[in-house]
Design a protein around this nucleic acid. Structure first.
Lengths: 115, 115
DNA sequence: AGCTTTTATCGTACATTGACGATATACGAT
DNA sequence: ATCGTATATCGTCAATGTACGATAAAAGCT
């Protein structure tokens, strides 16, 4: 039974949603990264191939290059992927512990809040 | 290498995001439900208590009743919780297989697209 | 230097989210 | 019937998300 007066209020939908806070924030931020089919598709692609040049990702999707770039940015900022500059192009790959961390955070929802 | 011409284009951000389509959609829809700290908090509460009257949920959060109700609706529509009408109040509980299904879908991202 | 390729960012347009107060609805109690 | 409690929904507002084309930035090639 919290105060009800401005505690979680207006997390500035996009901003605070990413700013990890109590653990809810961390989980929500990662989930947010997966919350669009295009981003799931990108992650699946990276999962299958291990890594992928940005251009190849764009070619695999029915979206404009600018749009894909935006989704890549979201995935990067939410911690799902990393991009390594390779000459004129960028090679993306899944962030190592991301999925594991996500699953751990999910565990906390199952029953208690055991960390 | 898809056609690039209108296939995934404009999924109507909110609508089609929920309409399961290829599997990306299903995962994205569930992730969407978790993509806000308030909803994670609600799920955690339900996880801890097993079930919970709507009013108790509202009391546990620093948000207006109307806002909590909206979040509950999202959680319901994305398949995370169920609400059972109990006289004048509503008792919410986590949907049985939701977490399991979510984790299964997550598996598909790990390496191949093995289902 | 100049051109091409590759990716990110800008600017824009529109729909949706998330928050709220106010109101409607449903049910039980008096 | 009427009142009170418990939830959902409506209407609104500011802010964000998603998509695009156009443009900038970075790197290699001629």
């Amino acid at each position: 039974m919290v105060d009800r007066i401005r505690l979680m209020k207006r997390p500035a939908p996009g901003k605070a949603r990413r700013a990890a806070g109590k653990g809810e924030e961390a989980l929500a931020a990662l989930a947010w990264g997966l919350a669009h089919p295009a981003r799931v598709a990108i992650l699946r692609l990276l999962g299958e191939r291990g890594e992928c040049i940005c251009g190849a990702i764009v070619d695999s999707m029915p979206l404009a290059q600018a749009t894909v770039s935006q989704h890549l940015k979201v995935l990067k900022e939410s911690g799902w992927i990393e991009g390594e500059i390779d000459g004129p192009r960028v090679c993306y790959c899944p962030t190592a512990g991301a999925m594991t961390r996500f699953k751990q955070l999910l565990q906390g929802l199952e029953s208690g809040e055991r960390r």
